[in-house]
Amino acid sequence: MVSIDLLAQTVSNGVLLGGIYALAALGLSLIFGIMDVVNLAHGHLLMLGGYVAIVLFTMAGLSPLVGMLAAMLVLFVIGIVLQRALLERVVDEGIEQPILVLFGVALVFQNLGQHFLGSDAQSTELTLGIGGIDLGPVLLSPSRTVTFVVAVLLVVLTWLFLEYTSTGHAIRATSQNRAAARYVGIDTDRIYMLTMGVGAALAGAAGSLLSMLFPIDPYVGWSYLLKSFAVVVLGGVGSIIGTLVGGVILGTAENVTALFLGGSYRDVMTFTIFLLVLLLKPEGLFGTGGGGE
């Protein structure tokens, strides 16, 4: 029998984890919403972001929060290079070709990781001078709280960028109607590069944050890709609030499943949510059910 206190603790941990899931999913959602590209390498970009923080932490003793900023920069560049070198050639050729290209990219990243970083799981540690937040039955651990706050902050900053800057407006215009965007003078090739860069940077940030809570190995990409998919499907493509809610629901559902059925059932829960949403409400909780075109 599980005590109420333990359940409350599990749920609160799940909510906090959900913030990072939302951040990971936001990048996937942006790339799909704006470029119509299903980024199968998204989980592997996240894995690389985790490793940037891990390498800086183990080699140079840098705080993983600083590592996260470095990871975002590195992944931003990787995203742009991916777009310029590979995706640009296939992005308007239907949905299948980018999927194949990105599947290949994911495998390359996984094998490079295995070769250069080894197969052993590694993690970072967030050392802060503060204790957890005690809420009676629930103790919010410092690392879980900080990673949640940073993740939500990044989600909000991304939203502000899209909503209130002229570049953000140009990105949204491009996602609605690429042809019209070109006619008003928006360089849509540049917008696509920026989108891949930002999407990858968000994945990288999520990876760094996750490295403070869980070990990262070169094979985690597929699992986090699946979680990101589930969140996007759950929240609805193009809805930032939906992504946040979706992340929190997934994080909570996973943790509660792990509590009652054991940790190995986490991904089963993810799959179940994924399939149920597709079956019952395919446009997602906050989705519009279709793009601009």
Partner: peptide
Amino acid sequence: AHVPEGREIFADSTVKRNLELGAYT
């Protein structure tokens, strides 16, 4: 400035935002 055939507007944005995007450059 090119006004394309078939209107090609930004359907999900407001009228004002559409006009503002016209002044992007």
